[in-house]
């Protein structure tokens, strides 16, 4: 999360689980005969705010997937210029509120007249892709290393823990900017847009894994000593089996929660990198990039800044609401 642009380096969840001894495994609560899944689902259903967040998230995912269609129906191609919508002297949109009209639902971009509606839709595509995939990378790395550290212990644990501490004590945003800016725009045979997406996914995902890793390590440490693991071991189960059959299922809940909570941070980071000019290259739209191009003109065309900014806000808020709700549902004591 610390990659989260200038956000607090530690959010409350990692603070609570920082000390392995204090971690309460969600499994503890699954004693009432009902599975954790059922309990969680019941709780989640009651949490209107979290459900609202979930609806917005689903809606955003849908519009991102349907962006090409929606653009065709309600907008214009993302790279089509519309000089006729601009004031010829200043290059600003004609009409109030950044040129919002029935023709251009969110107005037009200054200096080009491109359709902002279409561009934010495609921006959602980029943002969500980067956020999900980088969360996936963080989770995979975090689970692998966290499990290894917690289960194997000894020097493996010591090494991995040091690396995690080191990564957390790192000027990450600076480093991401530096790293992304020296890499070429096109690689691996991908076009500029998707190769940059790949780079962002790797960088953001890489800096995010220690958060998941620490949690998984802590949980593993406490689970390792539990009776059911002991039982499995005494019955002759081997390490891989214990890992896959006994530990992982019990880790699923916290992993799910923290993966959900890392997504909004990733959205903010992607937008920040694009804002600083090292994100998705033009003409491909991204929310951060749109905010960045709004900087010189925000005084004369505030809508151009407000629209992508608000979208980032809504998206991140929705994910946070949903993630919070999910955590409460799976582990009510954390609140």
């Amino acid at each position: 999360m610390s990659l989260g642009p200038e956000a607090s380096v530690t959010d409350e969840e990692s603070a609570l689980t920082a000390d392995a001894a204090e971690v309460r495994g969600p499994a503890e609560k699954a004693i009432a005969g009902r599975s954790l899944k059922q309990i969680a689902w019941r709780r989640l259903k009651k949490d209107k705010v979290a459900l609202g967040g979930a609806c917005v998230v689903i809606f955003l995912i849908l519009i991102a997937i349907l962006a090409p269609l929606l653009t065709k129906w309600f907008g214009h191609p993302i790279d089509e210029f519309h000089n006729e919508t601009l004031d010829p002297t200043f290059g600003t949109p004609k009409g109030a509120f950044g040129g919002i009209s029935t023709e251009f639902l969110f107005g037009v971009e200054p200096d080009s007249g491109r359709d902002i509606f279409s561009r934010v839709l495609y921006g959602a595509q980029t943002s969500l892709t980067v956020a999900f995939l980088s969360a996936l990378v963080s989770t995979i790395l975090g689970v692998i290393f966290g499990l290894a550290a917690g289960f194997l212990g000894g020097w493996v644990d010591a090494t991995i823990s040091r690396v995690m501490d080191f990564l957390l004590a790192f000027p990450q945003l600076l480093f991401s900017i530096a790293l992304v800016s020296v890499l070429p725009y096109e690689m691996l045979g991908l076009n500029a847009r998707w190769s940059r997406v790949a780079v962002l996914v790797c960088v953001i995902g890489f800096f995010g894994w220690p958060y998941i890793g620490r949690i998984v390590r802590g949980q593993t440490l406490s689970l390792r000593e539990r009776e059911f693991v002991e039982a499995a071991r005494s019955m002759g189960a081997r390490s891989p089996r214990i890992l896959m059959r006994e530990l992982l299922p019990n880790l699923a809940a916290p992993i799910l929660v923290y993966t959900t909570l890392i997504i909004p941070t990733n959205i903010l980071t992607e937008a920040a990198l694009s804002f600083l000019g090292v994100g998705i290259p033009p003409p491909n739209p991204s929310w951060g990039g749109m905010l960045s191009s709004a900087v010189p003109v925000y005084q004369i065309d505030p809508m151009f800044m407000i629209i992508p900014g608000t979208l980032i806000f809504i998206t991140v808020l929705a994910f946070n609401l949903f993630g919070d709700g999910l955590r409460d549902a799976l582990d009510p004591k954390a609140r």
Partner: peptide, 12 residues
């Protein structure tokens, strides 16, 4: 498009 290039540079 001479005009859109001119606008991209900042207008007349």
């Amino acid at each position: 498009d001479p005009t859109s290039l001119q606008t991209a540079r900042g207008g007349p």
